[in-house]
C-alpha cells in the first residue's frame, strides 16, 4: 500500500504551517487562505485525490484530510488575529500626533452680547406670561412724554436728553413710549407685555454712557394689580434668572409715569449680598426702575383709573452686559471692535 507523494498529508501539513508562520501581513494571510482553505484551495484538492487511493484507505484518508483542514483553519484564525492586532498596533503608533497642537480652524459665528442678555431677559418674562410688543424708534413727543404725564417744560424732562427730529417727533428716550401704544392696542382687555428695543439719548459718549442703548419695559394692567404683585413678579424674575435664593428690595424713586415709583435692587449677583467691588460693598445691585402706573397714564391708555391699576418697570440691558462680561467701556458695544465681539463666538 503506497500513497502518492502529493497526498502525503504529513508533508502537506508541514508545508502549510511553514507558509502560515511566514505570513506577516494581512495580505499574506489572505494569500494563505486562498492557497489552502478556500474552496479552490489545497485541502479541497486533497479531498478530490481520495479517488486515487485504495478503497480501504479512503475512510482513514478522508478523516485525516478533514483533521488537517480543521487544524489549518484553527491556526489560520489564530495567525490572522495575531497579525491584525500587530498591524493595528503599528497603525496606532504611526498615527499618533502631538495633541497639544492648535486645532484646525472652523468657521463659527457669534451673537452680539446685547442680544445674549436681551434674549435671556425676554425668555424669562415670556415664560411668566408676558407677550412681546414692539413700538417705533421714531416717536411722537406726545407718546414719549406728554401722554406719560410729562407735559412740555416738565421738570422730569431734565432727566432725559432727547434727540429731536422736529417739534413733534423725536427718537424715543425710553421704551415707556410704547406703553400708551400697547394699552391702546389691548384695550379693553388686561395687559401683560414686555416692550424691548433700542432707545436714544443725547448724551456725551463716554466709557459709561452712549447715545443708544437697549431697554426692556414691562407693563401689566388689570383690575386688582398691586405693588406687591410688582415685587412678586420681579422676585420671580430674579429667581428664574439668578437663582432661588435671590431677594428684591424696593427703594423710593421718581418717574412721572408711575406713582408710587421705586428703584428695585436685587442681591448682588457676584457676591450674593456679602458686599464686593461690583455692588460698591452694599450687597445690592440696581435692577430697574418701576412703579404703579400713574392714573393719568392709565387714562391716556384708555383705562379708567377708578377701575384699573397697573405696574410698569423698565430696565437697561447694557449695564448687565458690562457687568456680566466685565467690559469696562460701553463704547465697545456699538463701536463693534471685532476683537472684542469675536470673544462671544
Amino acid at each position: 500500500m503506497s500513497t502518492p507523494d502529493d497526498l502525503d498529508l504529513a508533508a502537506q501539513q508541514a508545508n502549510a504551517l511553514q507558509q502560515l508562520d511566514a505570513a506577516e501581513t494581512s495580505d499574506a494571510i489572505e494569500d494563505f487562505y486562498r492557497a489552502w482553505l478556500a474552496p479552490s484551495g489545497a485541502t479541497t484538492k486533497l479531498k478530490r485525490g481520495i479517488g486515487r487511493l485504495a478503497p480501504a484507505d479512503r475512510a482513514a484518508f478522508g478523516k485525516n484530510v478533514n483533521a488537517l483542514h480543521t487544524l489549518l483553519e484553527e491556526r489560520f484564525q489564530q495567525r490572522r488575529e495575531h497579525v491584525k492586532t500587530r498591524e493595528l498596533a503599528a497603525r496606532i503608533l504611526a498615527e499618533a500626533r502631538d495633541v497639544t497642537l492648535p486645532a484646525r480652524p472652523r468657521p463659527t459665528g457669534g451673537y452680539h452680547p446685547v442680544t445674549l442678555v436681551m434674549r435671556e431677559v425676554l425668555d424669562v418674562f415670556q415664560k411668566m406670561g408676558f407677550s412681546v410688543f414692539e413700538s417705533p424708534h421714531v416717536e411722537l413727543d406726545e407718546f414719549n412724554f406728554g401722554l406719560l404725564n410729562m407735559p412740555e417744560n416738565h421738570p422730569a424732562r431734565d432727566m432725559q436728553d432727547t434727540f429731536y427730529l422736529d417739534t413733534e417727533r423725536l427718537l424715543r428716550t425710553h421704551t415707556s413710549a410704547g406703553q400708551i401704544r400697547a394699552m391702546r392696542a389691548m384695550h379693553p382687555n388686561p395687559v401683560r407685555v414686555v416692550l424691548p428695543g433700542l432707545c436714544y439719548r443725547n448724551e456725551n459718549i463716554t466709557t459709561r454712557s452712549e447715545i443708544q442703548f437697549h431697554q426692556v419695559e414691562g407693563l401689566l394692567v388689570g383690575r386688582s394689580v398691586r405693588m406687591s404683585d410688582l415685587k412678586g413678579v420681579l422676585l420671580q424674575y430674579a429667581r428664574l434668572l439668578f437663582g432661588s435664593d435671590q431677594r428684591v428690595r424696593l427703594r423710593g424713586s421718581y418717574f412721572p409715569f408711575t406713582e408710587p415709583s421705586v428703584e428695585v435692587d436685587i442681591l448682588c449677583t457676584l457676591c450674593g449680598g456679602a458686599g464686593c467691588r461690583v455692588c460698591k460693598h452694599t450687597g445690592w445691585l440696581e435692577l430697574l426702575g418701576a412703579g404703579m402706573v400713574h392714573p393719568v397714564v392709565l387714562a391716556n391708555g384708555g383705562y379708567d383709573p377708578r377701575e384699573w391699576r397697573g405696574f410698569a418697570f423698565g430696565m437697561g440691558i447694557e449695564r448687565t452686559v458690562l457687568q456680566r462680561y466685565d467690559i469696562h467701556d460701553i463704547r465697545y458695544l456699538f463701536g463693534n471692535d471685532l476683537r472684542l465681539l469675536e470673544q462671544f463666538r
Binding site: 415670556q126 415664560k127 411668566m128 406670561g129 408676558f130 407677550s131 389691548m186 382687555n189 388686561p190 395687559v191 401683560r192 401689566l220 388689570g222 383690575r223 386688582s224 394689580v225 398691586r226 405693588m227 406687591s228 404683585d229 415685587k231 412678586g232 413678579v233 422676585l235 420671580q236 428684591v248 428690595r249 424696593l250 427703594r251 423710593g252 406713582e259 408710587p260 415709583s261 421705586v262 404703579m292 400713574h294 392714573p295
Partner: peptide, 30 residues
C-alpha cells in the same frame, strides 16, 4: 397714589409683601 407713596416711603417699602397677580391676565401670545 401720591399719599400711598408717602406712606410707603415713611414706613418702608420692605413692608410690602411679594405676591403674584390674583386675576386672570392674558397669556403669552407668541
Amino acid at each position: 397714589c401720591d399719599l400711598a407713596e408717602e406712606f410707603a416711603r415713611i414706613t418702608g417699602f420692605d413692608r410690602i409683601p411679594e405676591t403674584m397677580p390674583a386675576e386672570a391676565l392674558p397669556f403669552h401670545t407668541p
